[in-house]
């Protein structure tokens, strides 16, 4: 069982998003779970923002959960990047053992 690292950023405050990034080498690609009041109008853009941000950090396998509270694109990207960086910063010794 390969090990997962998790990073969380943001909040559930208005105009923000709470983003959890789980890096799992096991996974096929990146799965995004998105909950947002703007999903009908901006769902695709939001998913793209998450994907592009992860790509820029070279994250290829993982799971991202976004709980959006009306965040703008730049905020969602920022929260995703911070969550991913926090996950990447989890040192080897602290990885959760199965």
């Amino acid at each position: 069982m390969l090990l997962e690292r998790t990073g969380v950023a943001g909040s559930l405050e208005s105009c923000d998003a709470l983003v959890m990034v789980i890096l799992s080498p096991d996974r096929e690609g990146v799965e995004i779970e998105l909950e947002s009041p703007s999903i009908a109008s901006f769902g695709e853009e939001m998913k793209r923002a998450v994907m592009e941000t992860l790509e820029s950090l070279d994250v290829q396998h993982g799971y991202v959960k976004v709980q959006d509270r009306g965040s703008l694109d730049c905020t969602l990207r920022a929260r995703t990047e911070t969550a991913a960086r926090r996950a990447l910063a989890v040192p080897d010794g602290e990885k959760v053992e199965e």
């Binding site: 703007s38 009908a40 109008s41 901006f42 769902g43 853009e45 703008l72 694109d73």
Partner: peptide, 9 residues
């Protein structure tokens, strides 16, 4: 400029 252009439902 802030929000992007929304898709019409």
């Amino acid at each position: 400029e802030f929000t992007g252009i929304p898709k019409t439902p």
